[in-house]
Design a binder for these strands. Structure first.
Length: 490
DNA sequence: TTGCGGTTGAT
DNA sequence: TCAACCGCA
């Protein structure tokens, strides 16, 4: 069919890029090459279509560098990437006018505004008799594929994962095309630097580049390094933030520099068979990403509305000073502060510590989970509309498949258990680095002389605990008890 | 309908 | 052991 079209028309094909910034396993790109038509690749920064949530600050930094990498990859294939900013439909309309293209291809998105925008685009193009086709790539399975026995969506992860595991095998990745036929007509493109994606305060992103290489190559390097080594101890050490035992693929996945299909396929390598436990656990985490999209797809307002409406009555305190102390890593609880500072300095936080810091914000400070979700959205290089919303609601207890309300993380115990040597805390809270292990997670319990020897001044160079753990825990339990009674209380 | 079980915990 | 609930087959 593709060949037939190339015989009948040499009109160009427009290829949309959004969060699929790669040339390998890019089915839309592959299909565009197959047509034999000139290809016009265009990245659209759409912050104008209905309900679109603007890209957060950390992801803007990433996007800047990833687009630079993509531009280079496409150039090597013979095509020039155009940069356009605005509502998708308007951008495409103008491009079709300018270039007389008769075909538009893209890889599917699964965030609700993206779904709506692309659905409208497809029907509009179809109405005009143009070819519009979308492809998979972001998820192993469409988020509506799995249904419970009664035909609904899954609310609980375990049954979802059972259904997923019994489902069809994910396809194999497709290779990059050998080349693209260039489009020679006149085109216009924004200049990347005019988008000002890099932060105004350059100090903020200074630490990002040490940890991350945005782009397809950086993604493949991270995957190779993970499969080479860390996956062997992923099962045991993935909860220890001081150990490099996780894949660190999340920002690359979020920007579509690597696909879950490529990861899934790589996990089938024979020499990984010996790492059975690690690979199974890791697949299950990929499954969480799929589950989060399954939930978001079926609950478009997951990032802004309590899944469980009884939480609308939750007595949040929302103290501005407390929120700011949390954001800056100045709560006085070392494991919490280390996490928040890792986030600020590197654009990423270890998964275990995300739970600890989120639980602290919600349960110890009783600040609405949406404030935390928004902060993570702005500061995480891997900010993902599905995972972020699902995980915050999970910790709050307001979501589908929530943690029990009485499960309140104890930051001291979590610190002792998962950072027993204190390497993580010392790396990100250097003012405590000379404290002995025994007091590292509880500096306020250290005797005066120990504090003095370590150069720690509570209330001076490190804060007193913002709240007392036991008291805050009791208050949280009371607050949760109140909404559990529901309307009875009124 | 009924029975089972529920990512990540604390006391 | 903690309280009780609700998703799922």
């Amino acid at each position: 069919m593709a060949e037939q079209q190339s015989l009948t028309s040499d009109a160009p094909v427009v290829l949309l890029f959004r969060h699929d910034l790669r040339v390998n396993d890019n089915r839309a790109l592959y299909a565009a090459a197959q047509t034999g038509k000139p290809v016009i690749p265009v990245f659209i920064l759409d912050e104008h279509s209905d309900d679109v949530r603007p890209v957060g600050g950390a992801r803007r930094w990433w996007l800047h560098h990833s687009l630079t990498a993509l531009e280079t990859s496409l150039k090597a294939l013979g095509a020039t990437l155009l940069l356009k900013r605005g509502a998708t439909q308007n951008i495409v309309d103008r491009l079709l006018d300018e270039t007389a293209a008769d075909m538009v291809l893209w890889n599917r998105r699964y965030d609700p505004p993206g779904v709506d925008t692309d659905r409208n685009l497809k029907s509009e193009l179809g109405r005009r008799g143009l070819t519009a086709e979308s492809f998979d790539g972001h998820l192993l399975h469409e988020p509506y594929l799995f249904k419970t026995g009664t035909g609904g969506f899954y609310r609980v992860y375990s049954p979802f994962w059972r259904a997923f595991s019994a489902g069809p095998d994910p396809r194999d990745p497709v290779s990059a095309p050998d080349g693209l036929k260039p489009y020679d007509g006149p085109t216009t493109s924004d200049r990347l630097k005019d988008w000002q994606l890099l932060p105004e305060n350059p100090d903020w992103a200074k630490g990002f580049a040490a940890d991350w290489t945005p782009g397809e190559r950086g993604a493949q390097d991270k995957l190779a390094a993970f499969l080479d080594d860390a996956i062997g101890y992923y099962g045991n050490d993935r909860d220890k933030p001081a150990v490099e035992a996780t894949s660190r693929l999340s920002p690359h996945l979020a920007h579509g520099e690597i696909t879950p299909f490529q990861i899934w396929h790589a996990l089938k390598a024979p020499d990984l068979a010996a790492e059975g436990q690690g690979t199974d656990k890791f697949r299950k985490e990929i499954g969480w990403r799929e589950f989060s999209y399954h939930l978001l797809f079926n609950n478009p307002h997951l990032a802004t509305r309590n899944y469980n409406a009884s939480f609308d009555e939750f007595p949040w305190q929302n103290k501005a000073d407390d929120l700011q102390a949390w954001q800056r890593g100045l709560t006085g609880y070392p494991i919490v502060d280390a996490g928040m500072r890792q986030l600020w300095q590197t654009g990423w936080m270890h998964n275990r510590v995300r739970m600890i810091t989120a639980s602290f914000l919600i349960k110890h400070l009783r600040i609405d989970w949406r404030k935390g979700e928004a902060w993570f959205w702005d500061t995480l290089v891997d900010a993902d509309p599905a995972s972020n919303a699902t995980s915050w609601q999970w910790v709050a207890g307001s979501g589908a498949d929530a943690a029990p309300y009485f499960r309140i993380f104890n930051p001291m115990l979590q610190g002792d258990k998962f950072d027993p040597m204190g390497h993580y805390v010392r790396a990100f809270v250097p003012e405590l680095k000379n404290l002995p292990d025994k007091f590292l997670h509880v500096p306020w319990l250290a005797p005066e002389n120990i504090l003095m020897e370590a150069g720690v001044v509570l209330g001076g160079n490190y804060p007193h605990p913002l709240v007392d753990h036991q008291a805050a825990r009791q208050q949280a339990l009371i607050a949760y008890a109140r909404i559990r009674k529901g309307s009875e209380a009124f």
